[in-house]
Amino acid sequence: MGLKDWIEAPATAVVPATRSKLNWLRGATARLTTPLLPDDYLHLANPLWSARELRGRIVDVRSETSDSATIVIKPGWGFDFDYAPGQYVGIGLHIDGRWHWRSYSLTSPPNWDDKRISIAVKAMPEGFLSAHLVNGVPSGTIVRLATPSGNFALPDPPPERILFLTAGSGVTPIMAMLRTLSRRGRRPDVLHVHSARTESEVMFGDELKALADDHPEFRSHIQLTRSQGKFALSSLDELCPDWRERTTWACGPLPMLDEIERRWQDEGITDKLNLERFAVSRADTSGKGGTVTFEKSGKTVTVDGATTLLEAGEGAGALMPFGCRMGICQTCVVPVLSGHAIDLRNGKEHAEGDRVQTCVSAAAGDCTLDA
């Protein structure tokens, strides 16, 4: 590699190389000061400046419902705002001396002008980070960011007829799509069916109503399950007679998505279905667990059979690669050096020499990972 190519190369793998001038400056600064990277000096000038990682500052926290909020973030150097509506972004937050990472759907449309992104988070009873983001994170907090990614995305140009099926916080990636369509002035025929327990628990309820009032080509059906019961897929024939011809995006609880997937398979139209799962269906792995050693990081931790290897590594302070955290993108794959690991989705065991997806695998006895 010549000097010019070496300087212009991205400073880090997590910073996209789509903005050549920005990467030239950051890359040159990082490399010409090797081995003393300039981050410590840059941080004194501006906490968002980094040659090694993507950072952002939380600039606003807006309540959506009693247990959910929109988090507005100003990204720093190197963030690519040309993401596709519907993709997710990794967020790292420093709490109690260590970094906690999760992935959340972007709710903001792609926009280089505004230089802001937003996510919407619903606090879950078992969700340590989600509860902190909704109830405890102050404006001004510096976060780490991962590059937006994911295949659950709206194409450009969009289909002429669209069906959105969502429930609970599954509405979040759809909001990015709806806001993008509105901003671009695109007017496809859209039906959005959204389920929530009560009217007060409908995330973005006022905005969805306003969209329906202002755009006759957009129809919104809100199913309040506590008073109206679960939305029946059989009612689509009356609500939307041409649903089989529409491109569909569905996001919500796993049982809902499993039912949708079966129905679309029965109809022979799975090529028109896009699914986004926020959780992983797990097989019965009772009695598993063990001591996990992370060879490169020099960390060791003992975990139960319900804790993923990714969660174990992050909890122990090991530097773990990750992406979707749902077993889709393959970013988190690492080799097993010894022992056994088990895939939580299907119970398949992996042994020495195998490569495992740490976000959906757990220890099956003591094991050592090349991480």
Rank of each mutant, 00 (worst) to 15 (best):
L25T: 03
P241T: 10
H194A: 06
L106T: 01
R277K: 14
V14L: 04
I269G: 01
S66I: 08
E207Q: 15
I328V: 15
D304T: 15
L163T: 06
R355Q: 10
E217L: 11
R55I: 05
L165D: 02
D343F: 04
H192S: 09
P335D: 15
A9Q: 02
T65S: 12
L163A: 08
D5M: 06
G365D: 08
V89G: 01
R186P: 00
G289Q: 11
F81K: 04
P75Q: 07
V190S: 05
Q265T: 13
W6F: 13
L257G: 05
F152K: 10
A153I: 10
D80N: 13
P138A: 10
P173G: 11
F218H: 14
T70H: 01
R325D: 03
V190G: 07
T147H: 12
R62P: 00
R116G: 01
G127M: 09
G353L: 00
D156Q: 10
T29E: 01
P216N: 11
V356G: 06
Q357S: 14
N151F: 05
A123Y: 09
D5E: 15
S130K: 09
R184L: 13
L254I: 14
S200H: 14
R355T: 02
E53I: 03
C240L: 14
W77E: 04
N111W: 03
D284W: 07
L369R: 11
Q87P: 06
S361W: 07
A45K: 08
L37D: 07
L22N: 02
D213H: 11
G86W: 07
A123S: 12
T166H: 04
R52Y: 00
I342M: 09
R62K: 13
V72H: 04
I58E: 11
T70E: 15
R161F: 00
L310H: 04
E276V: 09
L3D: 09
S361H: 03
A232H: 12
D82C: 07
G27W: 00
V61L: 06
G298H: 13
R19K: 14
V193W: 02
V89E: 05
T172S: 12
F294I: 11
A306Y: 07
H350T: 08
P253V: 08
D40F: 10
G168N: 04
T34A: 15
E259Q: 14
S68C: 08
V89H: 02
A120V: 04
L163G: 07
L36S: 10
C324E: 06
W264S: 07
R31W: 03
V190T: 09
E276Q: 15
E126A: 15
P16R: 01
T172Q: 13
F322D: 01
